[in-house]
Design a protein around this nucleic acid. Structure first.
Length: 508
RNA sequence: GCCGCGUUGGUCAAGGGGUUAAGACGCCUCCCUUUCACGGAGGAAUCACGGGUUCGAAUCCCGUACGUGGUACCA
């Protein structure tokens, strides 16, 4: 087993958003950089929010991103099971150990009683009273109830939870790899529930126990966990010893255009927030993914990696291998970063240019076929993609950029042609078609030479002619060189399109 | 309210006592191409505010403001 063991612990409650993917990525990069193991553990302790299919979805996203866990519910490993719901038994044992050592207690308060307490103690200065050192002696728990009654309640199987007994007036501090020294006043922290009434642990107990049992050395998570870190530190101290505690890193949050990045931002601003399409099984609501939007996994990983991290050089484009090599936790920003979709698209564009067409040809083919264009010749298709790749930002752009290779234009940019159109040009194209007709070796050289010679003979500017030729073949002023296009679509189709356009333009 | 974390152009950011305060995205202008892109050359735009410390502060300290997270038998 490796010395460095890093875990990602998602709860299967929905789609995998940007922040989540970045957390996995940093975990993974750090583990691999240090030749360690990357572990995925599922935190499915909340039955009410558990969503069917979400776990499978998470693993699909990781796979698409090129992240392979060394240990997970899928791969198994020396510390199986890797789902908290399947490790239920061990948590109770540790909760009881805490009670015996005086660090925790049983609490029998009902939800109604808790609500009443919050209401009764609510003041203007303290809008959300906590179950803490100040009020726990007024509640119904093993600290206030006589021992025999506690025993009786327990024997009867009364619903109860286990709460941590927060110390008072203690400064709890720890070293975070990103924030460095962070400290909290223990008097201000409430008696968090460790074991719920259904016997499931809360996150607080589960992370600590599992990180210990799975011998985790580094624990990186989102910054939203920073305020509960002191609870975890205390549990480590009580249960296993601070010397065994993993190194913490609380990653900055990723923000949307206005505030915290949310699922709604996607619909609102028109960009994906999930790695892959996610359909909520309850509402049937579909949230678009980066993959389906036309992103390359290389670009997705890249843009996420540099959102909050850089290696101090000017490099911006990194492959996974380069990321592993150059990543370091001490160059991760402490401040949150706003996600910029324009920049995200730029990364994709760069990766489309950088990667060989073969890398994404199958995906682009699917896009074409889904739009009713059958691709019969893969080699020819590859050449066409090569021709247009530098003008595509998303994979989906390939369609608009290359349909005309497969389909004659249905409409023409007449506004560009009309001012330049005259009888002489009509003659030119008519003659061009008949000159192209007998060519046996249809290649760019003969196409271009014939075209230019004829232009000279007729004494017409080549440039104007080229523009018109382009509109005839493509329909608009876009795409690679005209003669390249003519060569690619073939002689028959070229002549066909000239004639078709001629018929259309004659109405000028 | 309380607690935590943060604050360099519109965005991502380098720089951590002396710099003309890098670079990238986006935006604008020009060149290339009689197309669209790619590419190339330029341009506009920044140290949240107020106090200290110092010969000198974007950089160190303290406040304030703002943002953000937590304050659940959610993770």
């Amino acid at each position: 087993m490796s010395k460095v063991r890093v875990r990602f612990a998602p709860s299967p409650t929905g789609g995998l958003h940007l922040g989540g993917v970045r957390t996995v990525l940093y975990n993974y990069l750090f583990a691999k950089k240090h030749g360690g193991d990357f572990i995925v553990r599922i935190e499915d302790t909340d039955q009410t929010r558990f969503v069917a299919g979400a776990e499978e979805y998470i693993f699909n996203c990781l796979k698409w991103c090129g992240i392979e866990p060394d240990e997970s519910p899928l791969t198994g490993g020396p510390f199986a099971p890797y789902r908290q719901s399947e490790r239920k038994e061990s948590y109770r044992k540790y909760a009881e150990q805490l009670i015996n050592d005086g660090f925790a207690y049983y609490a029998f308060d009902t939800p109604e009683e808790l609500e009443k307490m919050r209401n009764d103690f609510k003041t203007f200065e303290n809008p959300s009273p906590q179950y803490d050192g100040n009020i726990r002696m007024q509640m119904k728990n093993s600290l206030t109830l006589p021992d025999d009654e506690v025993k009786k309640l327990l024997d009867e199987g009364a619903r109860h939870v286990v709460r941590i007994k927060m110390t008072a007036g203690e400064t709890i501090s720890f070293t975070d790899m990103i924030h460095h020294e962070v400290s909290f006043d223990s008097s201000l922290i409430d008696d968090k529930v460790l074991l719920k009434a259904d016997g499931m642990p809360t996150y607080h107990l589960a992370v600590v126990v599992d990180d210990y049992l799975m011998q985790i050395t580094h624990a990186f998570r989102g910054e939203e966990w920073l305020s509960s870190a002191p609870v975890h530190v205390l549990l480590w101290k009580y249960l296993f010893g601070l010397d065994k505690m993993p190194q913490w890193a609380h990653l900055p949050l990723i923000m949307g255009p206005s505030g915290k990045l949310s699922k709604r931002d996607g619909a609102k601003y028109g960009f994906p927030v999930f790695a892959m399409n996610w359909t909520d099984p309850k509402t049937n609501e579909l949230t678009e993914g980066f993959k389906e939007r036309g992103f390359l996994p290389e670009a997705f990983i890249n843009l996420l990696a540099v959102l909050g991290w850089n290696d101090g050089t000017e490099q911006e484009l990194y492959s996974m291998e380069e990321l592993i090599e150059n990543f370091s936790m001490d160059r991760v920003h402490a401040a949150s970063a706003k996600f910029d979709f324009e920049k995200a698209k730029w990364f994709n564009q760069e990766w489309i240019k950088k990667l060989p067409v073969s890398n994404y040809q199958a995906r682009v083919k699917d896009i074409f076929e889904s739009k009713g264009i059958a691709i019969k010749n893969e080699t020819h298709f590859a050449k066409i993609l090569e021709l247009v790749k530098e003008r595509c930002i998303l994979l989906t752009d390939f369609f608009d950029q290359a349909v005309f290779f497969y389909q004659a234009p249905v409409a023409y940019d007449k506004a560009s042609v009309k001012p330049k159109w005259e009888e002489l040009k009509h003659e030119f194209f008519k003659e061009l078609a008949s000159r192209y007709n007998p060519i046996d070796d249809w290649n760019i050289n003969s196409i271009e030479t014939d075209f230019k010679n004829l232009a000279t003979e007729k004494n017409i500017k080549v440039g104007e002619l080229q523009m018109i030729f382009r509109v005839m073949l493509v329909g608009s002023k876009m795409g690679p060189g005209v003669f390249v296009i003519a060569e690619a679509i073939g002689k028959a189709e070229t002549i066909n399109r000239i004639e078709k356009a001629l018929a259309d333009f004659s109405s000028f």
